Amino acid sequence: MNTLKTSLSDEALVKQNEIIRDFFATDHVSEMVESMHYMVESFLFSTDLENVTPEMRVHIVNQLRVATMLMKLGR
């Protein structure tokens, strides 16, 4: 029984690895970083957030901009 659980667990890990690999094969890193930057910045500057201070929002956006810059330097 324990080997059956191990086998099923191994199969699940292989499947997860395939899903992740396929996901990253569809888009370039630059597209993912730019999309992430746009989504997070749009979310952070919406008025619905009560617990995120304006200073925190600026820090998060600045970190995303650094990630975008590093991605562009890697091209």
Rank of each mutant, 00 (worst) to 15 (best):
A25Y: 03
L49Q: 08
N51I: 09
G74W: 06
M36F: 14
V29K: 15
D22H: 04
N17Q: 05
A25L: 03
N17H: 12
L4E: 10
K5E: 15
V33N: 02
S30G: 09
E31H: 06
D27L: 05
V61R: 00
I19A: 05
E11D: 06
N62D: 08
K5H: 14
S9C: 09
S30E: 11
S30Y: 08
I20Y: 10
L44S: 01
A12W: 08
E50K: 15
V61W: 00
H59L: 07
S7R: 13
T6H: 12
T68H: 10
F45W: 09
D27A: 12
T6A: 15
E31Q: 12
L49M: 07
T68R: 14
M39F: 08
T68S: 14
A67H: 01
N51P: 00
S7L: 15
K15Y: 09
V52K: 03
V29D: 04
A67E: 06
E11H: 08
G74Y: 09
S7C: 15
N51G: 01
V33Q: 05
F23D: 04
T26Q: 02
V66K: 08
V14G: 07
M71T: 09
F43K: 06
M56E: 15
Q16W: 04
T3Q: 14
V61N: 02
M39E: 13
E34V: 06
D48C: 06
V29N: 10
E31A: 10
R57V: 03
M69H: 05
H37K: 13
N62E: 06
R65M: 15
L4P: 01
R21W: 04
E34C: 03
E41V: 06
L4K: 07
N62P: 00
V40H: 02
I60C: 01
S9H: 12
V33W: 00
T53W: 00
V52P: 01
T68K: 11
L4F: 08
V40Q: 01
T26L: 04
M39T: 05
D27R: 14
P54A: 05
K72N: 10
T3W: 12
V14K: 12
M32P: 02
V29H: 04
E41D: 06
P54I: 15
V52F: 06
T26V: 09
I19Y: 15
Y38M: 05
Q16N: 13
T68F: 10
Q63F: 14
L70W: 07
H28T: 13
M71E: 11
T47A: 14
L70Q: 07
V61F: 01
L64Q: 02
K5F: 15
T68C: 04
E11Q: 02
D22L: 07
R57I: 01
I60M: 03
K72V: 02
A67M: 15
N51K: 12
D27G: 00
M56I: 09
L13N: 11
D27P: 01
A67K: 07
L44W: 03
M39A: 06
L13V: 04
M36G: 11
F23L: 14
R21H: 11
V29E: 11
S35Q: 12
E50H: 11
Q16P: 03
M1Q: 13
L8V: 04
K72H: 13
